[in-house]
Amino acid sequence: MQQLSLLLASLPDGILLGFVYGLAAMGLTLIWGVMNVINLSHGPIIALGMFGTFFLFIRMGINPYIGLIPVAGLGLLIGIVIYFVAVHRVINAPHLSSLLATFSVNMIIIGLGTAAFTTSPYNVDFNMGSFRLGSTTILGTRLIAALIAVLFTGGLYLFLYKTRPGRYIRAVTNNRAAAELMGVPSTRILALSFGLGTMLAAVSGALIATFFPFNILSGGSYELKSFVIGVLGGLGNPIGALLGGLILGVLEGIIPAFLETSWVPVIEFALFVVILLVRPKGLFGAK
């Protein structure tokens, strides 16, 4: 009985967070799907999104939700730059090359970020009130963050299915060589996809900053979560990522009712490896 009430208390929060995690993972999985590159600079980009909220809100007084617009724009731009500087040359090379290339971007961002912001924690003191749902209290910031995550997913879906660049992205995802033969400008589409991936990462970071403290290294744990979610939802399936995020969020809500919280990562990563082995296309993908 006590467990049940604990469960009820932690579950809604888990679900809301799950949507935001899902948004971060969507960026990772989009890039993987389009170009088979695991973006190891994903974490630091999430962290940069967090600092984006910090500077826009604390220093410039811009509402964090309005601030998402410049954060998204910068995220897109940074991604395109990263693509041309680090990824383009190794796009057809063995996996190790693109993994290390994006990891070196990770090192560059973390190094500069540490020099600029140190590794001490930052906090965005932003309150959207809270309300009670049965026995649980739900923070306004988390509810809004979840809604925005869903909104972005819908936007991404519309973009991929209703616009010409979106269709190009899907064509390149499906078969790059064939898409090139059909006249799709593949380099530009790859750069755009990488930019969209980092944009989603930056936005999720900006949202997380409205309710959790952070530092320049914080992105790392969300990057790992994105791996888990990406695999749950099927690597390369952006919409699956939202569902994967939801599953992870629910797990994080449920597990502490039965086990100590420190067991959560054990279960998460064990699940991650098992899914990779049993259903590498994800829980919702074709077998």
């Binding site: 996996h95 993994l99 990562p265 990563f269 991650f272």
Partner: peptide, 24 residues
């Protein structure tokens, strides 16, 4: 059995799972 990046990802997962397990 996993090839390419899937193997790389699995090894990351195993390291993190092991770290979290030893922690407990």
């Amino acid at each position: 059995r996993l090839r390419g990046a899937y193997f790389a990802l699995a090894t990351i997962g195993i390291n993190e799972a092991m770290k979290a397990f030893v922690n407990n």
